[in-house]
Design a protein around this nucleic acid. Sequence first.
DNA 1: CCAAAGCTTGACAACGTTGTCAACATTGTT
DNA 2: AACAATGTTGACAACGTTGTCAAGCTTTGG
Lengths: 346, 346
Amino acid sequence: MKTVTIKDVAARAGVSPKTVSRVINGEDHVRPEIREAVQRVVAELNYRPNAFARSLSSSRSYLLGLFIDDPVSGYAAEVQHGALLQCRERSYHLVVEPVDLGRPGWQEQVRSSLSSLRLDGAIVAPPICDDAELLAIFTEAEVPHVLIGPSQPPADSGAVWMDDRAAAREIAAYLVTLGHRRIAFIQGPQSHSASARREEGFRAALAEAGIAVDEGAVRRGDFSFRSGLELGEVLLDLPDPPSAIFACNDDMALGALITAMKRGIAVPEQLSICGFDDVASSRAAWPQITTIRQPNAEMAAAAVDILVDPAFRRNGGGRNGDAPAFRLMLPHAMIVRGSTGPLGTA
Amino acid sequence: MKTVTIKDVAARAGVSPKTVSRVINGEDHVRPEIREAVQRVVAELNYRPNAFARSLSSSRSYLLGLFIDDPVSGYAAEVQHGALLQCRERSYHLVVEPVDLGRPGWQEQVRSSLSSLRLDGAIVAPPICDDAELLAIFTEAEVPHVLIGPSQPPADSGAVWMDDRAAAREIAAYLVTLGHRRIAFIQGPQSHSASARREEGFRAALAEAGIAVDEGAVRRGDFSFRSGLELGEVLLDLPDPPSAIFACNDDMALGALITAMKRGIAVPEQLSICGFDDVASSRAAWPQITTIRQPNAEMAAAAVDILVDPAFRRNGGGRNGDAPAFRLMLPHAMIVRGSTGPLGTA
DNA sequence: CCAAAGCTTGACAACGTTGTCAACATTGTT
DNA sequence: AACAATGTTGACAACGTTGTCAAGCTTTGG
């Protein structure tokens, strides 16, 4: 199958390749009748521009990178899907780059994908969006980048996030409304800045209700199901066990739920449990878990939009990242399901 | 940041660009001392070849596409991750292309990504690996492609799969061993050929044990959690309800499990449940679900290996796809967990 | 009706790499 | 020692597109 090039189209339409190029890229300065004629030939010959030639010539790659810690998680899947669809919408392509900050040589890997693929922009997911060394690589390579849920976005980065603190406060306040006073909190790993913000919200809600936080019932997990399982044991072994557990993410909430079930503790009659994230498995549990829906796909899509915005790209990648348009907060939603209920009179 | 090109390296090393090219690509015919000198300069200048220029010139893109139906599923995440890591290993990049056979115009989308990105190869995941129209597009564009778990791979496709039939037989036989005789089966959607193979295995196991399949206890779901939930209801409402349910995938098994719990039916004491896939949430349930582990990541990695194999690529993409080396079956494993147990004397 | 200003168009040279081929250097053979 | 075979190297022309710039139009305004 002989490949159709811009020259074939040009010859057939009786114009120069440059004119065809103008039509394809929707540029001005082409007479309407010529434009149409060219478009007709393009359709006829089934011409599709060669992305490589285009990139080589224009120094734009139409490629965005998604840099992410753990590409297997449900969270990653949602972010990726949101980014993917929006890229398609904008005629970009997406390359997923796993970054393991624990593995030596990751810097080289990142630099290599930046310069070898000439990415037009990068989306950086949590928790690595808070790694200064990683961000420095983007800055140095002058690659525009947008962070998802960062703790403190540098001036040259765009950012998209949700209000973790407010969301956590909301759900904790809901537990208080239900009558709970002894509320345990399972923290996420310290590397995730979102975990700290959620804890802040939790503490704020309790403070507002005049409830003292029992520091013995605040434990650190690592966002894994297993850690939820283990900390569930620890919390329920407490001399004065909590009537509600607020876990920093759904997987840990799920772990705590299973621990309760193993012990024959009824949820929510004897123990309320809530999570954060609204991953699929929080719905596939019984009871289903009360949680906060994060607009993951939407955040990713918004990140793509910022990256392709010429205004953001100017200045070699977001020196004006702190302009309001490139700092975007998206709304969350509390989803009340079966795992939380009024304090029983057990 | 001025970009370093092959010419810069050549100049600095006192050789021609072509020689540098040879060194980079590990070609023969370069004197060892020159090779080393060039390598030194490459490291010194931090030179990284421009992927676009390379592709344009060599008509190889070093890009593989992963064509997949539902990129958000846990299954997809595993496949993608396996492919991603192996691509990295082989210095390829991976582009994920969601294909929604239900949306009009998907053909154009696929053709466009093939010809615009000049993919070097495609990995096609189930269930779309069984769509003749899709495969015809790859063949027509002469893009080498490897199918994951296809029903009948065409001669010009590579294929990687597991023995769904044997695995299903194994797990069904295990239920029989536990004493179950009334075993319900929840089928997957007809579009997934794996579902049919699993059903075959199920029927074979029962036949071998001399047990007649109760056709009323064979119901079709759509692989979703919800359908498991609903069919669980249906099956447990049967006049003579089953003592075990074998669902064609974990999500449906999970649904059936939740249904049982809602009704206060003890699992596995009163009802055994098993699934297929070993997705993360099958472990995050209580009891954990007995299932078959599919080597998803491994199959994807194997697919990458086949695609980059020059022997496979010859002849414009796998006319020799039916050579044994490009037809690979990977082993599965039965994972017995808490959701199955001996037939109670209820 | 003419000059100035704006539009439309195409020639040509990049972009950074690799394929081809010819030149030259080395080794092996008789 | 002459010649063939083989190994090493670089010149040059692709690859398919877009940026630049200048030439030839057309319109506008006086």
